[in-house]
């Protein structure tokens, strides 16, 4: 019987190694495929090169880094305040009936394919920007609006969980001291839930940086430094998504190298989100 117990433990342990091994394989294969090109071009030239012309062996991804950062910042500026408002709404203000519509709706929002958002952006957001604000419409602004919608479920659900996790005494104590409901939320609950909300924002930003297909549809994909938020841009993800279909040789390696940069950014973001959450746990 002892044998059996030990045996099942080993079997489950082997299953449990799957996450580690898969992460190791992903890291290994993407680096093995992309690193030779970074070595060939030079890390500095790769990261800060202004020209991306695979046919002329020019592989500089600086415009895409700027593209990713600007679209993501825009999405966060719009999506984060709205998302936090929604999570406060759900925990503090929503009548139960409305909350029961809102939560599944947010879940549906999270489940809808990103390409559908891209399509909707192409139909409504892009023409609106072209007609009323100028430029080609396919732009940083259009991308920021659509990605803001797409990061909402992440921001809302994680902030909501951290608000709900607060001990009831915090709220009761503040109200008993004569604070108004809003004062309680603003000066007691939000500061107490700060680390969870920060983690929500970081994970939302990670989602925005990683989005590909919707971004391809609405960003315009021009490889150039944007001069305003109405200019089209290309991001790290869209660069891979657009060119992976036909790239070969050095060009394909350069796309994997783009993937390494993206992977590194995401790992840093995730590790910091985890660190913040852990620190709160202690």
């Amino acid at each position: 019987m002892k044998m059996k117990k030990e045996l099942s433990g080993y079997v489950f342990f082997i299953f449990a190694l799957s996450a580690i091994s898969v992460l190791a394989l992903i890291t290994l294969f993407i680096i093995a495929r992309g690193a030779p090109l970074i070595a060939k071009v030079g890390l500095f030239n790769f990261l800060f090169g202004m020209e991306w012309a695979p046919s002329q062996e020019k592989f500089g991804i600086f415009p895409m880094i700027v593209g990713s950062v600007s679209v993501t910042l825009g999405a966060a500026l719009i999506g984060v305040p709205v998302g936090i408002c929604c999570s406060i709404f759900l925990t503090e203000f929503a009548p139960p009936a409305l909350g029961n519509i809102f939560r599944p709706a947010i879940q549906l929002l999270a489940g809808i394919p990103s390409v559908v958002y891209g399509f909707w952006g192409l139909l409504f957001v892009v023409p609106f920007i072209r007609n009323y604000l100028g430029g080609p419409g396919l732009s940083i602004l259009a991308g920021a609006v659509i990605l803001a919608i797409m990061i909402l479920p992440t921001v809302i659900s994680i902030s909501e969980v951290s608000l709900l996790a607060l001990p009831r005494q915090y709220k009761e104590g503040a109200l008993a001291l004569g604070m108004t409901h809003w004062q309680t939320i603003y000066s007691v609950m939000l500061p107490a839930a700060k680390s969870g909300i920060v983690a929500a924002v970081i994970l939302g930003i990670g989602r925005a940086i990683g989005e590909t297909m919707a971004a391809i549809m609405i960003l315009g994909n021009a490889v150039a430094l944007p001069s305003s938020i109405l200019d089209p841009v290309r991001t790290l993800t869209t660069n891979i998504g657009i060119e992976m279909g036909y790239a070969s040789g050095d060009h394909q390696q350069a796309l994997f190298a783009t993937g390494i940069v993206l992977f590194a950014i995401i790992m840093v973001l995730n590790a910091s989100a985890q660190y913040i959450v852990r620190r709160r746990g202690k």
Binding site: L25, I26, F29, G210, M244, G259, L262, F263, I266, Q274
Partner: peptide, 25 residues
């Protein structure tokens, strides 16, 4: 802790990077 970290890290990796990995692997 390493298993949990790996699972969390996997959850954050963008789908296009999974695409690159799936393609090469």
């Amino acid at each position: 802790r390493v298993i949990r970290f790996s699972a969390e890290a996997l959850a954050g990796i963008p789908s296009i990077v999974y695409g690159l990995f799936g393609f090469i692997f």
